[in-house]
Design a protein around this nucleic acid. Structure first.
Lengths: 142, 142
DNA sequence: GAAACGCGTGAAAGTGACTTTCACTCTCAG
DNA sequence: CTGAGAGTGAAAGTCACTTTCACGCGTTTC
């Protein structure tokens, strides 16, 4: 799945993404949907492809990519670090309280509901985050 | 482990909960529904009522109260620290990306949906967290 | 009562995820 | 070629939170 060139095709006039940032983008993208990488994991993978790359570069890259809307940042309560995933269809997350595994869950708050809430409270809603917690199939057995 | 605390609000005259934990509970409780206090804020309030109380005691107390299900812990992406609120009806949270204010929002994932998701994926769901992000009424004007 | 026990306590040090700083390097328009 | 600005890596800093530990207070057990 070569999405990598859509980036430049989408807006060729846009300033080129620095190659390290591009590398980080590729790593997250290639992790695939449903995978959730921590900055440390991304750094490890990046090191193999570009020895000498710094930790701070990875953080900076993730920050930039997040701001550009190219990757999605995810904070899950109970998880020690943030995780990053490719942009995909809206979904919720499930975290197992025992093993800490994070799974994608196909759920989104109905847009009708969002509109109603926004109208009622007088705010605008840009994004939503839904996280479930419980015990995953594997841990439930024990 | 014997649970010696009966913390029913109907009988506050029987505080078997260590007094510092009770103090912390009272502070969160008195903050009222819809308020969200950080440990630092709670510590400040606690200091006024019981000079000399330690930071660690506040953290320990919150941890205990959370485990006992007496207060609710809330991690909001973008907010630097966790916040605590009294136990109340299930609701979602809204955070303004500009001023950082956190508001309660009356929304909960339908229990029918929860059951369906749990059955489909083979996990059990103990809790859910829904957070919206956007611009609040005040900040939208500017 | 007195001794024994255990939970609660506060200060301080530790941890770990991120962030900032800074001197250096690379890139590229002019 | 050249200079300005963006990017970079190492290291130090920040900050929320956790752990440790010696002490103390209250309760239990003679």
């Amino acid at each position: 799945m070569k999405v990598t060139f859509t980036l430049s095709r989408r807006n060729p006039a846009e300033p080129k993404l620095p190659k390290n940032y591009r590398l980080i983008y590729d790593i997250v993208e290639q992790s695939g949907l449903g995978r959730h990488l921590t900055p440390a994991q991304i750094y490890t993978k990046a090191l193999k492809r570009r020895p000498g790359i710094g930790f701070s570069t990875v953080y900076r890259g993730l920050e930039r990519l997040r701001d550009l809307g190219l990757v999605s940042e995810l904070h899950v309560p109970g998880a020690e670090a943030a995780t990053y995933e490719p942009i995909g269809p809206k979904h919720a997350h499930f975290r197992c309280r025992d093993c800490g595994a994070i799974e994608d869950v196909p759920y989104a708050v109905p847009s009708r509901t969002l509109k109603a809430l926004a109208a009622e409270h007088g705010f605008t809603i840009d994004s939503e985050r839904v996280t479930f917690e419980g015990r995953c199939a594997d841990c439930a057995v024990t």
